[in-house]
Write a protein that binds this DNA or RNA. Structure first.
Lengths: 211, 211
DNA sequence: TTATTTCCGGAGACGCCCTCCACTTAGTGT
DNA sequence: ACACTAAGTGGAGGGCGTCTCCGGAAATAA
């Protein structure tokens, strides 16, 4: 499933100013075809960033990432003008599948159980995928507002699941569901074995939401 | 460098290997009285650090703290050899009262209610006291292991409260109680209004712990 | 006062962030 | 095939931080 890392854009790739729609807008362009080397560099940077962030956390040196990717620092900044842009790109890439799982789970399970399953999945991703825990932590804690609005469907995913669960009448939730994720992420990276703790926290949270 | 370090305190100050007992071990010393100016500087640094950390978060520039305190950068490093040492000193200073409140609350309220009250108090501290939210976040998330074991009685405080609550048979908790704080801190600094969210989270957590 | 010990403070080495721009190179029209 | 040109490259450089080191100042002891 990792193979689907699809960044094959058909036409001209444009980055809009709005981060939410930054993914891929094929613009009716009178201009020329995008250069192959640029796209190559972008992908190399993304891969390298994923690895390095996973290894050293989201505050890893951007110079190191550029070096490791075999490009100049200027090239990194050309593709990802800010550290957040780069983190977001990695993050988006990683969580796309999480979002996809939301619809799948919500079709295969009763509402509350689907939510529970997805939260457990979220923990797995947090832990096993390239140290995303730290990245997510920095994202929620740090330059948060941006991501809260628009990261790769995660908010939509959990909104869907909690919406269904609440609609079923079994649970109640008077806060932004994404704060559930923040709570879980807060427990993460608290030392080895945090995943068990996080899983217990999920049970506590769901039990606490029951009417 | 782990060994001796100049500081206040009577004789030669020894840092034990265990950070928990780092506070003050006065070794039987035939040496002289500690210098007054050193202690003065240490206090100035502590106050300034508190203010600056509160204002700019735990990643504020140490040079700025030194400048603002009117001492050289070298003096700062002499008293607090690492950024974490400084943060810990501020943190310890701030949370002493929190720890004190634990015993008070546990005498004045039934077990579960005492726990609830204290968690709410924790939120207040997180929010109003010099931006401790960010500091606590960086502490739990960052160089965590150290603090998890021993910061200023906070672990003891919550252990006391949860211990009583569990003993009462009303609730159940199969995880390190300090992870409750981590969860709450995870919600913190998620934008304005997080305190309401955090308070609701407390209710959810306690409800979820009920047997 | 003088001697001794502690402590101060800032220069300096080094790393990282980010910008800027001379240079290179991939696509394009002929 | 070939020059043309805009897109893209990369790294030097300025700014800011961290942390170390040690000559000199200052406080205590005698």
């Amino acid at each position: 499933m990792e193979g689907v890392s699809g960044n094959k854009y058909g036409g001209v790739l444009r980055f809009s100013r709005d981060p939410c729609t930054r993914v891929a807008e094929t613009v009716d362009s009178p201009s020329r075809k995008p250069r192959a080397d640029a796209e190559r560099n972008r992908l190399r940077l993304l891969d390298t960033a994923k690895a390095v962030f996973g290894e050293k956390g989201p505050s890893a040196s951007l110079e190191e990432i550029a070096r490791e990717a075999g490009v100049g620092i200027g090239t990194l900044y050309r593709h990802y003008p800010t550290r957040d842009a780069l983190i977001e790109a990695v993050y988006r890439n990683e969580t796309g599948q999480l979002a996809a799982a939301a619809t799948r789970l919500s079709e295969a399970h009763p509402p509350v159980e689907a939510l529970r399953q997805w939260l457990l999945l979220f923990i797995d991703y947090l832990g096993t995928k390239y140290g995303m825990a730290a990245v997510f932590g920095s994202v929620t804690g740090g330059t948060a507002a941006l991501y809260a609005a628009c990261n790769s469907g995660t908010p939509e995913a959990i909104a869907l699941l909690t919406g269904r669960a609440v609609a079923s009448g079994e649970v109640r939730l008077d806060m932004d569901p994404i704060d559930l994720l923040r709570a879980i992420a807060g427990v993460a990276s608290a030392g080895p074995g945090w995943q068990d703790t996080a899983r217990r926290l999920v049970d506590i949270l769901i039990a606490g939401m029951r009417v």
